[in-house]
Design a protein around this nucleic acid. Structure first.
Lengths: 328, 328
DNA sequence: CTGAAAGCGCTTACAG
DNA sequence: CTGAAAGCGCTTACAG
């Protein structure tokens, strides 16, 4: 392993000089700079991050805590986040499926300058500690009750509300809701919006039309029978949409003639679905860009003003919703 | 920030004792162990990784160098790799789209114990250096000419060969080949297999039936005209397959009645496609599991025997290939 | 069973 | 413009 000592010896200067030159600090005679750069190049030297981090306390690294669901459903979210972190001269450090306690541990162990936590559960005690010890943090969604944290939120409630409302206004009832059974807050939020729209318009909703992933994978007779009694579908993501569409195609059901259809998702994931579906745009890329900007800014400037952002969902019409002429 | 000194003071012992107890080394009286554990718990102490890494040289971390393409096409590959790394008590450190030079730099800077590089370009000089400096490395595919490195390979050539052969044997010609225009070795390999099968059976292939992503996204008249002259399609991934299927559905083309279809991909990505497609199984999960096992084993045992693994691709019939009765 | 001390590879205030 | 020295938070061989 090549250390700063080796470079100093090779260049015939002190390690302090090598350090300053390689970090662009202070001023040095051209001759010395050249000697040092040549020596470093010749020896293939790279500054050891562990020594540097220990000494300076700066890690130049952002932790990312991400539930696996997002990796599968929104790969563009992770790609964008990582690229935004690079763009700000930090390194990302991705961790999948950690709970807040594990995240807190990593924070205390000095791995990152700050962390972006996607959809954490509400573990009040740990959040309290994270705040108390003044770690740089941005929570990206999640069921968090405290308000004194940086928070970037996508309005999933609104996503469910807008979609259901859109379908209700087109005279649909018995709106099938495709959701996931994993314990993520976003599923509960979307469902809340879906239910709220029903309430608002005085439409009865039926628990039996709330279908989860495992029911779709089974594709039972029971499900097919429900499809016959349904005139509209709302799905929380492209994957569940595709699972159902596969079943619909086998049943020779047409979208939107037989069934109106709205899916959550963004353009990357839904663009390849046929027939094209009216979508609720979930602005995940904007959310992570903002989170990266907020976090790195706080780290670099020390600015401790709490920022809370809410990004709205939005319907994008693609023609997969048809108005029913008669109410059921 | 809580350090080992704070814990030692709180517990009334030396820092050496704290270190040993928290790392389960040596033997200590129960009373002291309890005092130390309580103090650490009370102060919310976590061992600082930078100090530890600097002192021991052990990072407990595996670097992952991944082209973005895999994140989008095989999210299960990344999820599996990360989980396999966790399972061996290491941490993953993901980097997207780095070239070998940047990877080499990270290696020299002491971030990881070893690195898994997915589909690198063949930069002979840098590979030479990586080997010479004895970094723990597993290359996962890529266009590498040297044989003295750990290498896990999926036989993409065979994937292309098997698919084309399967279609040719079903009497197809003018087999449309959907590929990507990014500079990854796997695309070239699959194409090589596709061409080789044509050669082997004395079938003429036509450059005009090699369609890349941008042509699919345009969906020009020219493409539609080619579709009319095609009886079979082979696609390198589920995404391109879906793009084409969308076009086919609009043209009222039926699979397999009008067009036979084979896609590369694995079950997760292709399971939601309708109609169901005969696939070439690309064993990405097995590949990363092996890579993780090989790398962590080498790191832990110091075993330097070079390992080279080739995983074969395999056709999985799903009924989307139809035998043509007459040759064109 | 426990502690004092050395040292891992750096950066930086200080002195010259 | 340059260098000697302190010290970041740890672990571990050594001594007792």
């Amino acid at each position: 392993m090549v250390t700063i000592r080796d470079v100093a010896r090779e260049a015939g200067v002190s390690i302090a000089t090598v350090s300053r030159i390689l970090n662009n600090k202070g001023s040095h005679s051209d001759a010395v700079v050249k000697k040092v750069l040549n020596a470093a190049e010749k020896l293939n030297y790279a500054i050891n991050v562990n020594g540097k981090r220990l000494k300076t306390g700066i890690k130049n690294t952002i932790g990312i805590i991400l539930p696996e669901y997002f990796l599968y459903t929104y790969p563009n979210m992770l790609a964008t986040l990582i690229n935004e972190i690079y763009a700000r001269s930090f390194y990302p450090e991705l961790n999948l499926n950690l709970n807040l306690d594990q995240c807190f541990h990593l924070l205390r162990s000095g791995r990152y300058d700050g962390v972006i936590v996607v959809e954490p559960e509400n573990q009040e005690r740990i959040i309290h500690n994270i705040i108390k010890e003044e770690y740089h943090t941005v929570f990206l969604g999640g069921d968090i009750s405290r308000e004194d944290i940086n928070f970037v939120e996508i309005d999933y409630f609104q996503a469910g509300y807008l979609a259901a409302k859109r379908l209700i206004k087109a005279n649909h009832s018995n709106i099938m809701f495709l959701t996931d059974n994993r314990p993520l807050n976003i599923f509960a939020e979307i469902k809340r919006g879906y239910l709220f729209a029903h309430d608002e318009y005085g439409i009865q909703y039926y628990e039996e039309f709330i279908i989860d992933r495992s029911q779709l994978e089974e594709s039972s007779e029971d499900l097919k029978e429900k499809i016959d009694r349904t005139t509209a579908v709302f799905s929380i993501d492209h994957k569940l949409s595709q699972l159902l569409i596969k079943i619909l195609l086998k049943l020779n059901k047409k979208i939107p003639e037989d069934l109106s259809f709205i899916t959550c998702g963004d353009d990357f994931n839904t663009e390849t679905i046929f027939p094209e579906l009216t979508t609720v745009i979930i602005p995940v890329e904007q959310a992570v860009s903002l989170a990266a900007e907020m976090l790195t800014r706080e780290i670099l400037t020390g600015d401790r003003i709490i920022k809370r952002v809410k990004l709205m969902a939005q319907i994008k019409e693609k023609g997969s919703v048809l108005k029913r002429l008669t109410k059921k």
